[in-house]
Design a protein around this nucleic acid. Sequence first.
DNA 1: CTATCAGTTGAATATTTATTCAATCATCAA
DNA 2: TTGATGATTGAATAAATATTCAACTGATAG
Lengths: 126, 126
Amino acid sequence: MNKKNDVVCDCDVIHSEIVNEVRLEMPQEEKLYDLADFFKVFGDSTRIKLMWALDKKELCVCDLAVLLNMTKSAISHQLRSLREARLVKFRKVGKVVYYSLADDHVKQILEKGYEHINESRGNNND
Amino acid sequence: MNKKNDVVCDCDVIHSEIVNEVRLEMPQEEKLYDLADFFKVFGDSTRIKLMWALDKKELCVCDLAVLLNMTKSAISHQLRSLREARLVKFRKVGKVVYYSLADDHVKQILEKGYEHINESRGNNND
DNA sequence: CTATCAGTTGAATATTTATTCAATCATCAA
DNA sequence: TTGATGATTGAATAAATATTCAACTGATAG
């Protein structure tokens, strides 16, 4: 499977030199899937809110549920995604689980994104 | 609608002081939706590949279709998302449309993400 | 004009995924 | 032990979305 002639593309290459150059610079397929999966976690407003809040303060599930006005269950499901992507960390104190941002990377990415949406608004007019 | 007692949350706040503090630091609801929508564009491996390729070289739709082994249609649909999020720009030369990355922000975000998935792999062992 | 090719578009389908609901686990207090 | 509470989980449903397919546009060459 996936032989060289297993071609889905419906057209001929126009600039084969350049395409070959670029092909050599592409990371492993798997890495790019991982990268997409990583960003997928940022692509939901609930999780964005959770990350933004946790960037400010360490909070437990109930606090987050109140803050976002959602059920504990919904919050917990989304925190699971964030945990699996290693975007948040947590500690248990009795029954209470406190969540916080995993590291500074997350904050930096959030901020870069925030910059982008604010800037491109100003430059472009639509 | 959306009165104060229109409460979905199924629990009581535990640390009301802190929750109130955090609430004041949250950006407008709409901004957070925009931010999620922005990151949503990064959350697909086809678009990640397109961005990665376009970061290296300016390419036309056929080149991209060959590079990713997908139909022009599929590529074009995804380029549309990238255009709408202002992540790529393009120029027309005759029948051919050349795409490239919109600005350095995009590259920076891609790189930060790439760093994260590589680093968190190393630190954690699962 | 006509045929061809690069690219775009809209509708349909298939897949993914966010939230809900109900059940469950784990810890603590009575 | 029992009841209450914080939190997690799995299945189900509803909504979002990636790719395909077919039709179409617009530019170029004959």
